[in-house]
């Protein structure tokens, strides 16, 4: 144990990146212990992807669309389910960690550590993004052999750029969703599903936003998921390059720049309220 002879904190060498990485390590250790749950979510993700994408095959068999259109529809739905698997995993992860910490009672120890809140939240978000990427790639790899799809047009670099830039704003949404279990320990996670459901409805996951009633389309412009889906579909189905996608990437970057600080601010306000009212005490 280090000696402390002055009334000052023991010297620490860790910078923000190292401190944030501690949360990634912790989550990795936790997920290793809950590998069976990971398997459950993987199976669910694969089955969900297949079940929805097979709708396109039905459309082809019923003669509603020609083979070329059906291929595009398969890709449209496949990409929709995969992007949704990714987005929902990031959103789930962050609110689940807060719920978990409340349930275990460790939230007090985490919040009283000398880690700036933004570093703490960025660490949780980084794990959420990495974890979601791994899970989505596995779902993609398992689901792909079920469909004969043509990727000859795809610009994978542009797709990766959309995911990279879009993840910032999704992390912001995830942090906002994480505020709910911080404030409402018993029902917060279920309330965060409501956020996901709204994003699912308005963002054009399984259909283009143009089919929505006019008043709902207005909300779809306010969802970063709309631009992520547009960008991914543009890159994979339409073959759009990074340059052609500059507008979408710019909008996503703007969402990220606004949403991340805003969500950290909202989390800090919620934390302050929880400390004012004594809500951080262990529940359950």
């Amino acid at each position: 144990m280090a000696s402390f002879t002055n009334p000052m904190a023991a010297p620490r060498s860790s910078g923000p990146a190292t401190l944030a990485w501690a949360f990634v390590e912790r989550q990795t250790n936790l997920w290793k212990r809950y590998w069976a749950w990971e398997l459950v979510w993987l199976v669910y993700g694969v089955v969900n992807t297949l079940a929805i994408t097979f709708i396109a095959k039905e459309v082809e068999q019923a003669g509603i669309a020609g083979a070329r259109d059906a291929n595009d529809l398969v890709l449209f739905l496949l990409l929709g389910t995969l992007v949704w698997a990714y987005l929902s995993a990031v959103l789930d992860d962050i609110s689940l960690v807060v719920t978990w910490e409340r349930w275990e009672g460790t939230i007090e120890h985490t919040l009283m550590a000398p880690v700036p809140r933004w570093v703490h939240l960025v660490g949780m978000s980084v794990f959420g993004v990495l974890h979601a990427i791994v899970r989505t790639l596995l779902i993609f790899a398992i689901a792909l052999p079920f469909f004969a799809v043509d990727f000859s047009q795809a610009d994978w670099v542009a797709a990766a750029a959309v995911i990279a830039v879009g993840s910032l704003s999704i992390a912001g949404l995830g942090i906002l969703a994480g505020v709910l279990p911080l404030l409402y320990p018993e029902r917060g996670t279920q309330m965060s599903f409501m956020v996901q459901a709204v994003v699912l409805l308005i963002s054009g996951v399984y259909y283009s936003v143009e089919v929505l009633p006019g008043w709902l389309q207005v909300f779809s412009y306010a969802s970063p998921a709309t631009y992520i889906l547009d960008g991914i579909r543009g890159a994979i189905i339409g073959g759009d390059s990074v340059g052609e996608m500059a507008g979408t990437l710019g909008i996503l970057a703007l969402f990220g720049v606004l949403l991340v600080p805003f969500s950290v601010f909202v989390f800090a306000v919620a934390e302050r309220w929880a400390k004012r009212t004594g809500k951080l005490k262990r529940q359950g």
């Binding site: 620490r12 060498s13 860790s14 190292t18 401190l19 501690a22 949360f23 390590e25 912790r26 250790n29 936790l30 212990r33 809950y34 978990w100 275990e104 009672g105 460790t106 007090e108 120890h109 985490t110 550590a113 000398p114 880690v115 703490h120 262990r282």
Partner: peptide, 22 residues
């Protein structure tokens, strides 16, 4: 209060890390 499914060492590792220990 701990992460009950993590080992004692993994818990100590995390809490040490967020206090700046390597």
């Amino acid at each position: 209060s701990f992460f009950r499914n993590m080992s004692a060492y993994e818990n100590l590792l995390f809490f040490g890390r967020i206090y700046g220990l390597t």
